[in-house]
């Protein structure tokens, strides 16, 4: 039986740990609330800008002029086609700055590695497989947002091109502008053929999903890949067919209903608007990731607090047992002594 004093010490230290984890739980619960609000506020802007770009994209490139370079994914004159397929991919990886948030970071990193592996393997479709072999494989580079992303380099040896500091509170779009500018510049200069963003999508306080999405080239045909698009939101509980139908309708109505006037010109408007769209999507990814991080931390800390409570309970039990054993043996000794005297 362990010493009662030792057990008492442990109970006390576990109690202290519990206090800390409980405090952290409360803090992240408050932060989570704020982060969720921020996500929801940005959503309507993201939706509307996406809808506008959809409309614009169709008007652009219809009258024989080549489509905007940021929009162009597949046409003959596109950057990708010129280089013969996708060879270099940049991944913007959004992680947390701090630990103690459960599997938050490892889950997103694992997801990214999985998707890289999937794209490096021979393609199941023989035609595409050949194409990929001719392209000579794909190389990946990382752009990090958040300190914990450094694991991709430390543990998996992927090259890191840039490591941007991430603030704990993000409420200005301005904070993602440097990242957005860099990827747009590098994409246009041909350093990358594709830019992906990996972040954790916030679904609800108990559920977060890691996602890898294409940022560049902007692909208007796969709208569901995008952040916060109307009707694409899993939070609304819409099923996929409904979404697809809506999208189709939208595409049709967009084609036939609207003849836009552009001021000053389609190119100039798109030149200003598309970088803005990239910024807003990065911004939203960041906000989603933040909300997810805080909920993951809240959950982890909640579990830690519960574990501490269990442990303290068990230790109290063994403490009481030890104490009772001590009392019993003392009584036994005293009564033995009394008996000896009486004899």
């Amino acid at each position: 039986m362990a010493n009662t004093r030792d057990i008492k010490k442990r109970i006390k230290s576990i109690g202290n740990t519990k206090k800390i984890t409980r405090a952290m739980e409360m803090v992240s619960a408050a932060k989570m609330r704020k982060a969720i609000e921020a996500v929801l506020r940005t959503r309507s802007y993201a939706n509307l800008s996406w809808a506008t770009v959809l409309n614009l994209a169709r008007a652009n490139g219809q009258d024989g002029r080549p489509p905007h370079p940021l929009l162009d994914a597949v046409s003959a004159g596109s950057a990708q086609a010129k280089r013969g397929g996708v060879k270099k991919v940049a991944v913007v990886l959004i992680t947390s700055n701090r630990g103690l948030c459960g599997g938050f970071n490892s889950v997103i990193i694992k997801k990214v590695l999985e998707s890289i592996r999937k794209h490096s393997e021979p393609h199941p479709n023989p035609l595409l497989r050949k194409e990929r072999e001719q392209a000579g494989g794909v190389s990946h580079e990382f752009i990090l947002l958040g300190k914990k992303g450094q694991a991709v380099y430390k543990n998996f040896n992927f090259p890191v091109t840039a490591d941007f500091p991430k603030l704990d509170y993000i409420n200005e779009v301005g904070e993602v502008i440097p990242v957005a500018r860099m990827i747009i510049k590098d994409y246009l200069s041909g350093q990358y053929d594709k830019v992906m963003v990996a972040y954790t999508d916030f679904i609800n306080a108990a559920k977060q999903l890691p996602r890898v999405k294409q940022l560049l080239p902007i692909d208007i045909t796969t709208a569901d890949e995008y952040l916060g698009v109307v009707g694409q939101d899993p939070r609304l509980g819409l099923n996929k067919e409904l979404i697809e139908e809506k999208e189709k309708k939208h595409l049709q109505s967009g084609q036939f209903k609207y003849e836009y006037i552009f001021e000053p010109s389609p190119e100039e408007v798109l030149n200003e608007m598309l970088p803005r769209l990239i910024e807003i999507q990065l911004f939203q990814a960041l906000l989603e990731s933040n909300a997810s991080e805080q909920s993951a931390r809240r959950l982890a800390m909640h579990q830690a607090t519960e574990a501490a409570t269990d442990m303290a309970g068990e230790l109290t039990l063994s403490y009481n047992k030890a104490r009772q054993a001590g009392v019993t043996s003392e009584i036994a000794e005293i009564s033995a002594g009394a008996n000896a005297l009486a004899e």
């Binding site: 506008t52 552009f262 001021e263 000053p264 100039e268």
Partner: peptide, 19 residues
């Protein structure tokens, strides 16, 4: 205020995109 100058939009305006 658009890039090309100040404009006023009334109902039934033609579709327009401007910065």
């Amino acid at each position: 205020p658009t890039r090309a100058g100040e404009i006023t939009v009334l109902p039934n305006h033609i579709p327009l995109v401007s910065s």
